[in-house]
């Protein structure tokens, strides 16, 4: 195992079925069991704090970090309300949340903490915290998913979170909450008949899982745009979870990957995967995406005309 401040990365799905009714489908139960295995890995990892990035919590105004010390509520999912209510009480780390927001700002991002009684913690974070950290053994922060952010902003967000982890001196586990393919069945199904929505979604899920099993996190990160086009319902501009996870964990392929489960949940590709820093696994493979350090705002398509080095625009087409 490679010594690293981020001692574990965990990918988990966020739909409530493994928490509320795992018994209704064998696959949902396997996801629940995988959550339990991931929890044990987490407990043995030496992590002192959980850093959660949830694709179930959209934000518009930059990046929000949950900082309310003990959020408590009885929660009902807006889609799957008939599965029942979820009582929760979690333990956040306000100081670390502030540090994360500060580090985001230092890299040019618009960020803030949110600390309000009754704030609606998202389904994915609730499910992940209930199953990975049931006794609130570890304090946590939750980071939102900005719906307009694309790769550069997401990479810088991940690096900012990493800055906060390094500055805190704490060992952290990065938990990313997301489906792989995200196409839900849009009709009621018998739980026993659940399956990945399409063969194409399934094949892309398997390709990502093959890479993750080999610890190739940065390669998965750099395939995110392709995955978004091939296997995602485009509710947001891009598929961000692996950009965030990779940039928090170090942008390389040096991990031991452990695919604990892969099953359909209401048609989506649900996987529980752990990544542990390793000395030499797949090694550094080839990368071709930009590696920004600071966020300088949205870059418009025509911005290059303003750059002095480009010279003035010709008033009309030349010869």
């Amino acid at each position: 195992m490679r010594e690293d401040n981020v001692c574990k990365g965990i990918l988990v799905p966020g739909l409530p079925h493994p928490l509320l009714c795992p018994e209704k489908n064998e696959g949902w139960q396997r996801i629940r069991d995988a959550y339990d295995k991931a929890r044990i890995e987490l407990e043995e990892s030496g992590a002192e704090i959980l850093v959660i990035y949830s694709t179930f919590w959209p934000s518009i105004l930059g990046h929000q970090v949950q900082a309310y010390p003990e959020p408590e509520w009885t929660y009902v999912d807006e889609e799957f309300h008939d599965l029942g209510s979820i009582d929760y009480k979690f333990k956040m780390d306000p100081e670390f949340a502030e540090l994360t927001a500060t580090k985001c700002k230092e890299r040019g991002l618009h960020a803030r903490t949110v600390s309000y009684y009754g704030f609606p913690i998202d389904t994915g974070s609730i499910v992940a915290l209930k199953l990975l950290n049931p006794d609130n053994r570890l304090p946590a922060i939750i980071v939102s998913s900005n719906m307009y952010a694309n790769r550069a902003e997401s990479i810088v967000l991940g690096k900012s979170i990493r800055d906060a982890i390094d500055a805190s001196g704490k060992k952290a586990a990065a938990v990313v909450i997301s489906a792989l393919s995200n196409r839900l069945h849009t009709v009621e199904i018998d739980p026993k008949d659940d399956k990945i929505h399409s063969l194409k979604d399934h094949e892309w899920n398997l390709k990502f899982l093959e890479y993750l099993e080999k610890g190739r996190l940065e390669d998965v990160s750099q395939l995110s745009r392709q995955f978004h086009n091939e296997a995602r319902v485009p509710k947001v501009v891009s598929f961000k979870p692996f950009w965030i996870m990779a940039s928090i964990m170090g942008q390389n392929n040096l991990y031991d990957g452990n695919v604990l489960a892969y099953e359909p949940i209401c048609g989506t590709g649900a996987a529980v995967v752990t990544l542990t820093p390793a000395e030499d696994t797949a090694g550094d493979l080839e990368y071709d995406e930009d590696d920004p350090e600071f966020y300088k705002g949205d870059r418009e398509v025509l911005d290059f005309y303003d750059q002095p080095g480009m010279g003035p625009l010709e008033e009309r087409d030349g010869d």
């Binding site: 934000s59 889609e79 949110v114 309000y116 998202d122 009709v187």
Partner: peptide, 29 residues
């Protein structure tokens, strides 16, 4: 109230609680 499996309707007579906007919690509680 976004749903993906059909259209849903409130079916309980009374609701009383606190609504906190997830995007603008500084403005709406």
């Amino acid at each position: 109230w976004a749903t993906f499996v059909g259209t849903h309707f409130l079916g309980v007579e009374k609701f009383k609680s606190l609504s906190v906007d997830p995007i603008f919690p500084n403005l709406f509680r």
